[in-house]
Each structure stands twice: as structure tokens, then as C-alpha cells.
Amino acid sequence: MDTFFISHGSPTLSIDERMPARHFLMSWKSKFLSTDPKAILMVSAHWDKPELAVNSINGPNNTIHDFYGFPKPMYEIKYSAPGAPELANRVKELLKKGGFGKVEEDKKRGLDHGAWVPLMFMYPEANIPVCQLSVQSDKDGTYHYNVGKALSSLREEGVLIVGSGSATHNLRLLGPDHVPPPSWAVNFDKWLTESLLNGRHEDVKHYEEKGPAAKTAHPEPEHYYPLLVALGAAGEDAKAELIHHSWSNSSLSYSSYKFQTA
């Protein structure tokens, strides 16, 4: 099974019918993955911890509304997909085997908006078990690529691995939708796509050195690292495909990718 990186962008995606990324996600099953996975492993930018952690939920996942100052209807959305404790155990097993040591198991945490916003359009029935894996912003890109590499066998077990972040993410430099994206965002977004499509995985791992205006595009790394987990899980010879590209808030890129396994 292929792996994916989804730029989830602004949480207003959950209610704004004008956003192109919303329609991209609604077409998921017809265009990108016609067979339902047995379970989904979501690697979201919005679960950032010092150590690796998985949520292991028996019963439905809670919907975490981890944003502030948005319209009331957004706080009323529920995405109660079942938890995936068996997958959580399998993730822990594979990461330990891969040399990552102890993985924390959280039996209470549900799905943050980096997980449930895209999933509510990809799988609106909310009937596929979902487990979340954290990122570690104090680690580097190679570390997260190797996390994905350790989990690569899940693809053969019917598990869909999705990294959820943003191709560009600088909340201080957002603007109105009608303002064209600034050069720093365009240049980094273009570099990322070209690097992935041409198989320059080492450059992608070391984006902060190789990518133009990388520190402006990603002042903090947590929205970039889910991409590296998904890429690593697809294998060293994975082929990337750009499956969606749009902008919102002037500088927020929704570039999303499929990583096809060799």
C-alpha cells in the first residue's frame, strides 16, 4: 500500500466549502485509494512530544478541538472513528525492533485536528480504526525518516500511513486569500516538489540546509516531519507524485503527495 503526505492547512477546511483542498480530500476514495485500509496510522503535526507516543484507544476516539477563536460550528464537529489498539501495539513493536526503544502509550488522547479534519472528508463514515503517532520537534529529519522506515512493513498489513502537516507553515506570515503567495513560500514549495519528484531524499531530509527560505517556510519543524515519516515508510526507492496543490491565507501551501512503493 502506498503512503501519503497531506497538507491539512487551516482547520477552517472543516467548514469552508470554497477551499480546493476540501474537494481534493472528498475525492480520496474515487481517485487515490479505492480499497479501504484495515486501519489508519496518522502522523500529525499537532501531537509533538519529547518521546515517541501512540494513542491506544478502546472504543471511539475523542475529537480534539485544538484551535482557538474559530467559528462555533467547528467546535461541534465530531469524528468518532474507532481506536486501533492492535495497531498501536504493532507500531510499538516495530519501533522497538527498529532501535527506537520505549514508546509511550496514551490510552486517553483522541484525534487532533491534524488527523480528523482530513479524515472527515477521506473517510466520512468514520468506520476505519485510527491510531495516532507523535512527532518530536527536537529531533531531526533523518530521525523521522527512519521512524517511517521502521514502520514500512505496515504497508503490507493493510495499514494506511498518512503524514499530516503542511508544505509551508509560518503562522506569523499568513495573509488574505486574495493575496498571491510570497516568493519565499513559492520557492520552498517548488523546491520540495521538485526534490521529491526527482528522488532527492537526502535533500528532503536536510531541508533546513537545502531548501530555499526553509526557516521562513518552517520556523518550527513539526509540520514538516510527518512528510518524512510517510516518505521513509514507503522505502528508499519510493516514487513521489504530487496529488494536490493549492494555497490559502496567501502563504499556506496544501501540496500533498503520494509515495508509491517500489
Score class of each variant (00 low, 15 high):
Leu52Thr: 10
Leu52Arg: 12
Ala53Gly: 12
Ala53Thr: 13
Ala53Asn: 13
Ala53Val: 09
Val54Phe: 08
Val54Thr: 12
Asn55Trp: 06
Asn55Pro: 00
Asn55Tyr: 03
Ile57Ser: 01
Pro60Ala: 07
Pro60Ile: 04
Pro60Met: 12
Asn61Lys: 05
Asn62Cys: 02
Thr63Glu: 02
Thr63Trp: 01
Ile64Ser: 06
Ile64Thr: 08
His65Leu: 05
His65Asn: 11
His65Thr: 08
Asp66Ala: 04
Asp66Ile: 07
Asp66Pro: 08
Asp66Leu: 01
Phe67Thr: 07
Phe67Trp: 01
Phe67Gln: 05
Tyr68Glu: 15
Phe70Pro: 00
Lys72Ser: 14
Lys72His: 13
Lys72Met: 15
Pro73Met: 14
Pro73His: 14
Glu76Asn: 13
Ile77Tyr: 07
Ile77Phe: 06
Ile77Glu: 03
Lys78Thr: 11
Tyr79Val: 01
Tyr79Thr: 07
Ser80Glu: 13
Ser80Ile: 08
Ser80Cys: 11
Ala81Ser: 14
Ala81Pro: 10
Pro82Gly: 00
Pro82Trp: 01
Pro82Ala: 09
Gly83Tyr: 02
Gly83Pro: 00
Ala84Lys: 08
Ala84Leu: 03
Pro85Ser: 05
Glu86Gly: 09
Leu87Pro: 05
Leu87Asn: 07
Ala88Gln: 03
Ala88His: 09
Ala88Val: 01
Asn89Ile: 05
Asn89Arg: 14
Asn89Phe: 01
Arg90Tyr: 09
Arg90Glu: 08
Lys92Gly: 12
Lys92Trp: 00
Glu93Met: 08
Leu95Thr: 07
Lys96Thr: 05
Lys97Glu: 11
Lys97His: 03
Gly98His: 09
Gly98Ile: 06
Gly98Asp: 02
Gly98Ser: 08
Gly99Tyr: 01
Phe100Ala: 10
Phe100Ile: 02
Gly101Ala: 09
Gly101Pro: 02
Gly101Ile: 06
Lys102Gln: 14
Val103Ala: 11
Val103Met: 11
Val103Glu: 08
Glu104Thr: 13
Glu104Gly: 09
Glu104Phe: 06
Glu105Val: 15
Glu105Lys: 13
Asp106Leu: 11
Lys108Thr: 10
Lys108Ala: 13
Arg109Ala: 07
Arg109Ile: 00
Gly110His: 01
Gly110Trp: 04
Leu111Asp: 05
Leu111Lys: 14
Asp112Ile: 12
Asp112Pro: 12
His113Met: 08
Gly114Ala: 11
Ala115Phe: 00
Trp116Val: 02
Val117Tyr: 08
Val117Met: 02
Pro118Trp: 12
Pro118Arg: 09
Leu119Phe: 04
Met120Pro: 02
Met120Ala: 11
Phe121Gly: 10
Met122Phe: 01
Met122Ser: 07
Met122Trp: 07
Glu125Ser: 15
Glu125Gly: 10
Glu125Asn: 14
Ala126Glu: 05
Ala126Gly: 04
Asn127Arg: 15
Asn127Glu: 12
Asn127Val: 07
Ile128Gln: 09
Pro129Ser: 06
Val130Leu: 10
Val130Trp: 03
Val130Thr: 03
Cys131Ala: 12
Cys131Trp: 00
Gln132Asp: 02
Gln132Gly: 07
Leu133Trp: 03
Ser134Gln: 10
Val135Gly: 10
Val135Gln: 09
Val135Ala: 07
Val135Glu: 14
Val135Ser: 06
Gln136Trp: 06
Gln136Gly: 04
Gln136Thr: 09
Ser137Cys: 12
Asp138Gly: 11
Lys139Asn: 11
Lys139Phe: 06
Lys139Cys: 15
Lys139Leu: 10
Asp140Ile: 04
Gly141Pro: 01
Tyr145His: 15
